[in-house]
Structures are given as C-alpha cells and as structure tokens.
Amino acid sequence: MKLRARQILKAYGANPARWPRGERAVVQEALSQDLPTVASQRRAATLDALLDAAPRYRASPALIARIRAAAESSPGAGGRRTPRALSREVWRETLAALFRGPVMRPASALAGAVALGVLVGALWAPAEDANAMAAEFVTLAFGHDFQVEGANE
C-alpha cells in the first residue's frame, strides 16, 4: 500500500484531484501512517508549485470565432462522397462558375434570345410558307444537294 501510494505521488503529483479516482483512499491512508510517504508528497508539491508557474495557454475568443468561420465556409458535407457524386459536384460547380462569369453571362443571354426568336418566328409564319422556310433552312444548313420532301410541290 505504501509503495503504491509513493508511486502515485511520483507519477501524478501531490494534488489528490489528479490521483486515480479508485486509489485516492489508499494514498490518504498511507499519508496518515507513513512518514516517507508524507515526505514524498512534500517533494511532489514542490515540483507542482514550479509547474504551476508555467502559464497555461487558453483559447482566445478570436480563435474560437476563426474556427467557427472556417467551419461555416468549409464544404462540410460530412459523409464520405462516392467518386461519381464527387464528379457530379465538380461538373455542377464548374458549369455554375462559367455561367456566373462576366464572359458567359451575356453570351448565354444572347443564345437564349436567339432561340426564343426562332421559336416565335416559326409559330407566327403563314402555313403556306412553311415548306419554303423549311427548304431554305435545310439549304442553309446542309447545302443544295439536300432536299426536303414536299418542299418544291
């Protein structure tokens, strides 16, 4: 018992709060009966006092705020992503970045306007001109060798 008490003092120091919870009574009993154990506690207390002189570093509010900000701006999806999901996410982000960009925004708006114009023009054109328009479109697109059935009737 005395030997174990001195081992605990040498490892954990003089403060009972640091001793193993289940063995505190053993050390207290040894201290009440054994002078060498008392001397061992006194030596441990001297070292403890010096160790307490070393300042303890504590987290500043700025550090806590920094970590919160970093967490909020991190992807933070948590779960492990499959390669396919990761690939989809990369594509989605790339396309989104492109269409958010200063170059692609006017280009995509122009393409949308052209498509809308073609659609409106086709819907409003007179029915009798439809075949001629189709022939002209095909000629423009594929050349004179390409014919549309019924276009020249």
Partner: peptide, 30 residues
C-alpha cells in the same frame, strides 16, 4: 489549444492545430 501549446511551444502552431482538429470534427460529424 493549451495541450497543443504545451507540445509545440508556439501559440500560432497551437491555434492552427486547434482549428484543424475542430474542422475534422465538423467535416466528419455525420
């Protein structure tokens, strides 16, 4: 941060280690 400071002897290193530690908790929370 206190433990990291005791280990590294550098306040800046301790803060960085604390940040990385908590970000790992955040990212792996699920």
């Amino acid at each position: 941060a206190g433990f990291s400071y005791r280990m590294t002897g550098s306040a800046a290193e301790a803060d960085d280690i604390a940040q990385e530690t908590f970000l790992r908790l955040w990212r792996g929370r699920e």
